[in-house]
Computed example of a mutant assay.
Amino acid sequence: MGESLKKSIASIALVSVLALTGCSGTGNTAAGAADSKATQEAPKVPDLIGSWKQSNPSSEKSYQQATVTADKMTIEWVSDGGNTTSIYWIGTFVSPTSANEPYSWTSTRDVEATKSSLLASSDATKEFKYEGGTISYKVSALGTTTTVNLKKN
């Protein structure tokens, strides 16, 4: 009976060691996976530089498009299905520095670049907002104001 008791204690000890080793290994793996997942899902600062097109046009033949560079934003009216463009806005642009949305900025109009365009906004500044992949802003013409939404091409 003494030999049987020694074998039982040795078996229990072995199972306990294996259980503890298994738990600590699983715990570390789970923590590593959680850390890895958090790193993968970290929000990124949006890159707004590039070409944009109005996603809510009133027709396929007439809409607004924009080009955003590191420090400038140019918006054009497009008509004739893309055959005719007219300047609406040329102004300053400041890229976001964090991933927080919505991101808003005030653009100051380049008066020299827009003064000869009949369809250009005469506003000194214009408010823009970026959220969920869309740049939005208000456009007023002939007493009507509408919100334009742009999506990146």
Rank of each mutant, 00 (worst) to 15 (best):
K72W: 02
N149V: 01
S8E: 13
L118D: 12
P96E: 08
G133D: 05
A31V: 13
D71E: 10
L48Q: 02
T29G: 02
A38N: 13
K152V: 03
I9W: 10
A70P: 05
G22D: 09
S98C: 09
K151M: 08
D110P: 01
A42V: 13
Y103S: 04
A124G: 08
A30H: 10
I87K: 09
L20G: 15
P46Y: 02
S58R: 15
V68I: 15
S122A: 13
K115A: 06
G32Q: 14
D47Y: 01
V17M: 05
P46I: 02
G2W: 07
S58V: 11
S122K: 15
L5K: 14
V139S: 07
P43L: 11
A66P: 05
L142G: 11
K138H: 04
P46C: 03
L119M: 10
L5W: 08
V111A: 14
T85D: 05
E60C: 03
T114E: 04
S117E: 01
M73D: 04
I135V: 11
S36I: 01
T146A: 09
S98I: 07
S86E: 13
D71N: 15
Y130L: 03
E127I: 06
S95C: 01
P102E: 08
I12G: 05
A42L: 14
E112R: 12
S62G: 00
S98F: 07
G91E: 03
I75C: 00
C23P: 00
R109H: 07
L119W: 06
W52Y: 08
D47P: 02
V15A: 14
M73R: 02
K126N: 03
S16W: 07
S62A: 14
K138C: 00
S16T: 15
T69S: 15
D35L: 12
P46W: 03
K126E: 01
T114P: 00
E76V: 10
S86Y: 06
A34W: 08
E101V: 07
F128R: 04
G25C: 09
G81H: 09
G27R: 12
T147C: 05
N56Y: 06
I75T: 02
P102L: 08
S117G: 03
M1P: 08
T39L: 11
G143T: 11
I90K: 06
V111D: 14
V68N: 05
K53R: 12
P46E: 03
Y88G: 00
S11D: 12
I49N: 00
N153M: 09
T85C: 06
C23L: 13
S95Y: 00
L118P: 04
G2E: 10
N56E: 07
G32R: 15
A34G: 00
A38T: 10
G143A: 10
G27K: 11
E131M: 04
S122V: 10
A124I: 12
T74M: 08
T67C: 04
T39K: 15
Q64R: 09
S36Q: 14
G91F: 00
S4Y: 12
V45T: 12
S62N: 12
I9N: 10
A33K: 15
A66H: 08
T29I: 13
K7T: 14
V148W: 00
N153H: 03
L20E: 09
S107L: 03
Q40C: 09
A124Y: 11
N100V: 11
K7A: 14
E41L: 14
V111G: 03
A31R: 15
K61A: 11
K129Q: 11
A33D: 12
A33W: 13
L119H: 05
Y137T: 07
Y130C: 05
Y137K: 09
